[in-house]
Computed example of a mutant assay.
Amino acid sequence: MKLFIKLKDTIERNNLESRPQIIFNCDESGFQTDVGIQQILCRKGSRNPHKVGGSVTKSTYTVLVYCNAIGDYLPLYVNYKGLHFYSNWCQNGPKDVVYNCSPSGWMESSQFANWLENVFIKHTTKLEGPKLLIFDAHNSHLTIPLIEMACANNIELFCLPAHTSHVLQPLDVRVFKSVKNARRNVLKDYIVILDAKM
């Protein structure tokens, strides 16, 4: 309950009640490069098998999405796994996507700061007044340079409590869940087609 009171106070303090177009939410999620092994591991004769064995060769990349409170989505930010970035990684991708890389493929502090500077600030700089950015409080997000950059660009940072994004994070609950389910089905269909051709 305290979270919603703090959010209400933040919105009122910045006079954003009638300006939902400058209230933003961002979230990222990891995607695997394969669909995983399609085998069920269970004891012989089990009536309700449910565990799916995963692949050990998976590589992760991260997609960061952000939108404002009226539902306008801004350019995606895709972070691949790699020590060096290769231009062929961004061929035939969606328009206006910004690409980067990290050794793990996960969003680390330098990638999040890069997103804030080169995507968020770039696309919101013409909006007058303070901007509110709501995101989860992962330790890779908050650094002193990032906070200083946000302050210098009139961006109020509002962190959701850790380990609550599965319930409170709108992009996690509505967008990424649907996208991942659809993507999983497309990959499974693609693998079936490939197997049939062999």
Rank of each mutant, 00 (worst) to 15 (best):
M1S: 10
M1Y: 08
K2D: 06
D9I: 11
T10M: 05
I11R: 01
E12V: 06
N15E: 05
N15G: 12
L16A: 06
E17M: 14
S18P: 00
R19P: 00
R19M: 06
P20I: 09
Q21A: 09
I22P: 02
I22M: 05
I23P: 00
D27C: 04
Q32S: 14
Q32K: 15
Q32F: 05
D34W: 06
V35G: 01
G36A: 01
I37E: 13
I37M: 11
Q38H: 10
Q39N: 09
Q39F: 07
L41Y: 12
L41I: 13
L41D: 13
K44P: 12
G45W: 10
S46G: 08
S46Y: 05
N48W: 07
P49S: 10
H50R: 14
K51D: 10
G53H: 14
G53C: 15
G53V: 15
S55L: 15
S55W: 12
K58L: 08
Y61P: 00
T62L: 10
T62D: 02
L64H: 00
Y66G: 03
C67Y: 12
N68K: 03
A69C: 04
A69I: 02
D72A: 07
V78Q: 00
N79C: 13
K81W: 04
H84M: 10
H84A: 06
F85W: 03
Y86Q: 14
S87R: 07
N88Q: 13
G93F: 06
V98C: 03
C101I: 10
S102P: 02
S104E: 01
G105N: 02
E108N: 14
S110L: 09
S110I: 04
Q111V: 01
F112C: 07
W115D: 00
W115V: 05
L116I: 07
E117N: 13
N118W: 13
V119K: 01
V119M: 04
F120M: 04
I121V: 06
H123P: 00
T124W: 02
G129K: 04
P130K: 14
L132Y: 02
L133T: 05
L133M: 11
I134W: 09
I134V: 10
F135S: 01
A137K: 11
H138D: 00
S140T: 11
L142E: 01
T143Y: 02
P145R: 15
L146Y: 08
I147K: 08
I147V: 14
M149W: 02
M149V: 01
M149L: 15
A150N: 07
N153L: 05
N153G: 03
N154T: 10
N154E: 09
N154I: 11
I155Q: 10
I155K: 12
I155F: 09
E156K: 13
E156M: 12
L157M: 06
F158R: 08
C159Y: 08
A162P: 15
A162M: 09
A162G: 14
H163E: 02
H163D: 01
H163Q: 04
H166Q: 09
H166C: 10
V167R: 03
L168Q: 10
Q169D: 13
V175N: 08
F176Y: 15
S178V: 07
S178H: 07
V179S: 01
N185S: 12
V186D: 03
K188R: 11
K188E: 03
D189C: 11
D189Q: 12
Y190K: 13
Y190H: 05
Y190D: 14
I191T: 09
I191R: 13
V192I: 09
L194E: 13
K197N: 13
